[in-house]
């Protein structure tokens, strides 16, 4: 997954979810893919809603989710030739406060989709109220996938790992760095399942309506080089169809060879 491929995949992500995403800010600067006026900033725990508002105001995102203004950050740093990925940080920060009084936490997913907090139908009279609601402070949900092999140390700090708001100090092993489209699928599944269902799935069976699309999305990812850990611990698997195809080819070749040998 080279730098130009990755950048093209960000465009593809926007095209795929263009009714859902707003305010694209992505830029490529030589071997770095980030967003306009990028500032390096890792939020401290607990991540509060005001932190996210601050990021929104400073335009520190690749895309915003149209319905609730949550943000997605996609950062990939390649070597100077653009061939090898050196670092990556893919994050989703929700604007929804965990455990908002209206709904219980278990309904978070539904809440984030139902809460019509955008100003489409705001009326003057309501403006004050909305402000109060809007500036309600509280911790928000987030997830982040980091790839930083230079800092990695075994299973507790694997090359590629995921941090999530529920376990902010834990690093969950991830087999590889998702491409932008894969990360977007993950965000949608976790944060906006209803929209995901409408966009991708068959209403009755729940299976994908267009498997070729999924194949395309999962065509490529940046597989971690150190694979020992992934064979030792439960981890998040990032699909990689190119790799799978290669394996299939190898397997089929071997099988074929064996058959011939017999």
């Amino acid at each position: 997954m080279r730098v130009n491929e990755t950048f093209q995949l960000i465009w593809d992500t926007y095209s795929d979810w263009s009714t859902f995403l707003i305010n694209p800010q992505h830029i490529r600067y030589d071997s770095l893919i980030s967003w306009n006026r990028y500032e390096s900033n890792i939020l401290k725990n607990p991540v509060m809603k005001s932190d996210i508002i601050d990021l929104i105001n400073k335009k520190q995102y690749t895309f915003q989710i149209g319905k609730d203004e949550s943000i997605i950050q996609l950062y990939y740093l390649y070597d100077s030739r653009g061939n090898n990925l050196l670092e990556a940080r893919l994050a989703f920060f929700s604007t929804q406060i965990i455990g908002l009084s209206k709904q219980s936490y278990k309904e978070f997913n539904t809440l984030s989709e139902d809460a019509r907090i955008l100003p489409d139908d705001f009326d003057d009279d309501l403006a004050g109220g909305v402000v109060s609601d809007r500036f309600q402070e509280g911790p928000v949900s987030w997830l982040r996938i980091d790839y930083a092999p230079d800092d990695a140390k075994g299973v507790l700090h694997y090359d590629c790992h995921m941090n999530i708001s529920a376990f902010p100090y834990s690093r969950l092993v991830v087999s590889g760095v998702p491409n932008p489209r894969q990360f977007m699928e993950l965000v949608m599944v976790i944060g906006y399942p209803e929209s995901y269902r409408k966009h991708r799935l068959d209403a009755e069976t729940g299976s994908y309506t267009d498997t070729s699309k999924l194949k395309e999305i999962n065509k490529i990812c940046y597989q971690c080089q150190n694979r020992e850990v992934t064979s030792q611990i439960i981890h998040f698997h990032v699909p990689n169809n190119t790799l799978n195809d290669k394996i299939d080819n190898i397997v089929s070749k071997r099988t074929g060879n064996r058959k011939r040998t017999r």
Binding site: Y14, S18, I22, I52, I56, E69, T95, P119, F122
Partner: peptide, 30 residues
């Protein structure tokens, strides 16, 4: 008002195709 957001997103997509940058300020934006 009720469908404003949906249409604004539609215009943003079209402008992206013309390589014109745009922004949809939300309730959190300054």
């Amino acid at each position: 008002a009720p469908r404003a957001r949906q249409h604004l997103v539609g215009i943003q997509q079209r402008l992206v195709n013309y390589s014109i940058a745009s922004t949809i300020p939300g309730i959190y934006d300054s």
